[in-house]
């Protein structure tokens, strides 16, 4: 390999997602049918933009891991094509794979190796000349420096997860796949992990993560793709998705509890909650007429005293559950 360590250093300008640039990953009509006859992916088309954090969301068995595995070379595609950073992943697999780092879902490790050795091993395997300074940087970034001489078998699950990330970063990839990065990780470590991912994005690395924690996608992603039953059913910018599909909820706190909804308020889609102390109104924030002024006037006219009110935007989880449910 002729790659030098500096050749793959991302440029600072790559840090901001730019839609006009060629996508860093282009997936065309990707199919995968396993030998058992199970069709895991059905003609997937997807583009990942340079420098973005893309979250692939979907229930278990939706095809997330199969999709990642094909791009990374662990699984052979049945049909279709994937271009990673300008290289076909099958025809030009060396160049394609050299730009990709993968953090797998399972915590697998060479139990008797030290942290330093296993991370250095990864760099060598990807055809890069030894660079102790880079390994040191990666280990320090992931708070693994103190553990560098520890054998992997002595590390906690969270630390092992960090080691897997360090291994994936050892060869300075431009694209990083994180397959369920925070599965089984405690809250504090999850926050740490998110910070690591954000820093990576700032340095210009494109990140694709799969998750079934909606919170994760909501917290980190620039764009979200939803996969279900081997098909991409939606790809949207996170903000747009939440705006477009987001329902809002208005909650009115009542001074005195109601036994039943007064007749004057019937037919407005209101529900009683908290043993009659709350009136809940669901509406579409995108609509010109939300119905809120009329509702407030009707509440006033019905003689109800409101002590407090709040609105809440539906979470990605609500959107997601709605989307997946709609599909057969």
């Amino acid at each position: 390999m002729t790659d030098t360590p500096t050749a793959t250093q991302p440029t600072p300008s790559a840090a901001s997602p730019a839609a006009h640039e060629a996508p860093i990953i282009q997936i065309d009509k990707l199919d995968k049918t396993y030998a058992s006859g199970y069709q895991a992916l059905k003609s997937i088309d997807l583009e990942i933009q340079r420098g973005e954090i893309f979250a692939l969301l979907g229930p278990n068995g939706a095809g997330k891991t199969t999709l990642i595995s094909i791009i990374c070379g662990l699984v052979n595609p049945t049909g279709g094509r994937v271009i990673a950073d300008g290289h076909d992943i099958v025809r030009d697999y060396r160049a394609a794979r050299a730009t990709i780092g993968l953090v797998p879902q399972e915590l697998t490790s060479e139990a008797f190796e030290t942290v330093w050795n296993t991370v250095s091993f990864s760099r060598g395997l990807f055809g890069k000349s030894p660079d102790p300074a880079h390994i040191e940087r990666v280990l320090k970034d992931l708070a693994l420096w103190d553990k560098r001489n520890n054998k992997l078998i002595t590390l906690s699950g969270g630390m092992k997860r960090r080691v897997l990330i360090a291994k994936a970063l050892a060869h300075e990839p431009r694209i990083l796949f994180l397959d369920e990065p925070t599965a089984g990780v405690d809250v504090e470590l999850r926050r740490d992990m998110w910070n690591v991912v954000r820093r990576l994005r700032e340095s210009g690395v494109t990140i694709i993560l799969t998750t079934h924690y909606i919170e994760e996608a909501e917290e980190m992603a620039d764009r979200i793709g939803v996969i279900s039953n081997g098909e991409i059913i939606l790809v949207r910018e996170k903000q747009a998705l939440m705006r477009q599909l987001g329902r809002k909820e208005l909650t009115l706190q009542l001074a005195a509890p109601l036994a039943a909804l007064p007749d004057a308020l019937a037919g407005r889609g209101l529900t009683l909650d908290d043993e009659g102390r709350q009136l809940v109104y669901t509406y579409d924030a995108q609509q010109d007429a939300t119905g809120i002024p009329e509702l407030l006037r009707a509440v006033d006219a019905a003689g109800l005293e409101v002590t407090d009110l709040q609105t809440r935007q539906s979470s990605l989880e609500d959107i997601f559950v709605g989307l997946v449910k709609e599909r057969p």
Partner: peptide, 13 residues
């Protein structure tokens, strides 16, 4: 052990 994922994802023939 599952560590073969790395070998398969590496740019090696």
């Amino acid at each position: 052990s599952g560590t073969i994922y790395e070998l398969l994802s590496a740019p090696v023939s």
